[in-house]
Amino acid sequence: MRKTWTIAELTVRDVLRRRGVIVLMLLLPTAFYLLRHNDSPGQSVRLLCLGLSWGVSTAGLFVAASARAVEPRLRLSGYATAQLYLGRLCALWTLGFALLVPFAVVVRFDHPWMRPAGIVLAMAFCVLIGAPLGLLIGGLLPRELEGMLLLLIVCALQMMVNPDDLLMEMLPLWSSREIGIWAVDEPDDLGYLLRGVAAGVAWTIALVGLVGGVSAVRLRRRAHVRAL
């Protein structure tokens, strides 16, 4: 437990010292939120969620990149693979939830008629999903720039795909969108909420599993090494 905690603590410090990433994490949701603020409140909240998720993913990308060089050494010096990636995930989730609070407060006062629980839940899934998504992309693509591009594609798809398209349902943040619809547009249709939560939980579990899988493969004990 102490090892996981150490990783989490130092990851938080690492991220907090990157001013660029912090600015990006704050700026993305803010800009997205203001974009449609006046003409379409529902849309602006959806975009805010997207920006939040993108910010957390970006932080995850940088965390994964900086971990890449040291993780093999840390494995050698006594860490288990799970301690390494779970520690980083906890750090990103903590940061993401800390980021969520001010935005949730703003929306609460900006649009008091929206369901606050729904807004928070939609944002929470953005954080829950965004963190492992960033770590996963960072784990698969060695260079930050490539990861950034891939993240951009995911985010752009999320924004531009026609809501009725089947593809929309397969994107990671569909859950947040569904919960958002329940919170903003269709307060009486619980179906949106349930579908959203189910998809969000599934995506979170799947992504965390994938991050674990990729780490396990990258940091595996190689077959040619044996104990004497």
Partner: peptide, 9 residues
């Protein structure tokens, strides 16, 4: 193959 006794740094 590589065989090691103990820990590696």
């Amino acid at each position: 193959t590589v065989e090691i006794a103990g820990r590696v740094g």
